[in-house]
């Protein structure tokens, strides 16, 4: 039998008339790196608050390491590390004081678990006497992660740790997560960045309080149901609109310097070439590609609507 670290079974939560999450079920295996992927308002934070026992579900049941989120909240708090979306450390305490504070309330010391945070903490240690409020975004993030880890939690909850963070720091952050996973910590992380889904073992794609799909990133990509092409021409501005008029077109979305074009059936190079040339496009390039998570997410969003 597999051992699950987190099980959510049909949990729901409303704020007044607004349904934040509806019948959410998923399970996270021990030592898994699990991603909740979705835009703002998809319910990611509500799920985190329920699992970390800060919020009661309106319906449903959830457990963390076998403990019930309602009955056994005290046990869950001891074994969880939580990094909320908003920076929640003490601005007027120094870097070191914040870390010491979190170690103390969990009845441990910085020394005892220093091994676990060493790789992350050494990067901010030169600033250990600086007030947390005066740190740059990247450094705040490293301090918050260190504080969430200082009591050696079994499960680490990270709510949008990379939002508003630049591409380089995002890559570094994910490298840190991969290292932590090796140390036997279950990690559940949320993000609005679709490209980060590929770095998780398993993901739940979320939108408006519902799960669109749950699987490994590879399987989600395999389930994409249409042939997908990458198209470029000398008029990238008009290209998506024109491709949408091609018969058998499903969608045409901008993806960086090309358009991702999905069609009902396989199409021939000559057909699309002729179609675009007829509309005055030149330097047309066209090739079949494998979709990425963002392609899949948009397709699932459309099905949902």
């Amino acid at each position: 039998m597999e051992v699950f670290s987190i099980i959510a079974d049909q949990i729901s939560k409303s704020y007044g008339d607004v349904k934040a999450i509806e019948n959410i079920s998923f399970s996270v295996k021990k030592d898994e790196l699990y991603g909740l992927i979705g835009p703002d308002g998809s319910g990611k934070t509500t799920i985190f608050r329920i699992l970390t026992t800060l919020l009661l579900p309106k319906a449903g049941k959830a457990t963390v390491e076998g403990f019930d989120v309602v009955k056994d909240f005290k046990e869950i708090r001891k074994i969880s590390g939580y990094m909320p979306g908003r920076f929640s450390l003490y601005h007027d305490l120094s870097v070191e004081e914040n870390l010491q504070f979190y170690a103390t309330i969990f009845c441990t010391t910085i020394q005892e678990n220093y091994d676990l945070i060493k790789d992350i903490y050494v990067q901010i240690e030169p600033f250990k006497n600086r007030k947390a409020g005066k740190l740059s975004g990247g450094m705040k993030q490293k301090l918050a992660l260190s504080c969430a880890l200082i009591h050696k939690p079994k499960v680490l909850f990270l709510d949008e740790p990379t939002t508003g963070v630049d591409a380089v720091s995002r890559k570094e952050f994910w490298e840190m997560l991969k290292n932590l996973q090796q140390k036997g910590i279950t990690i559940i992380v949320s993000t609005p960045y679709m490209d980060e889904a590929a770095l998780c073992d398993k993901v739940a794609l979320m939108q408006k309080g519902k799960i669109l799909s749950i699987d490994t990133p590879e399987k989600i990509v395999q389930q994409y149901e249409y042939p997908l092409y990458q198209v470029t021409s000398d008029n990238m501005y008009e290209l998506p609109g024109i491709l949408n008029n091609f018969s058998g077109s499903i969608s045409a979305h901008r993806f960086g310097d090309s358009i991702h074009f999905a069609t009902r059936q396989e199409i021939k190079h000559d057909d699309i070439h002729e179609f675009l040339a007829d509309k005055g496009h030149q330097q047309i390039e066209f090739k079949k590609i494998t979709p990425d998570i963002e392609d899949c997410f948009m397709a699932l969003m459309k099905n949902e609507n």
Partner: peptide
């Protein structure tokens, strides 16, 4: 200033259509 942070991928593209 970072107008599309946290926005879903379809809306993000619609936003860029507005920018264009």
């Amino acid at each position: 200033d970072e107008p599309t942070g946290g926005v879903d991928p379809i809306t993000r593209r619609q936003f860029w259509d507005m920018i264009y």
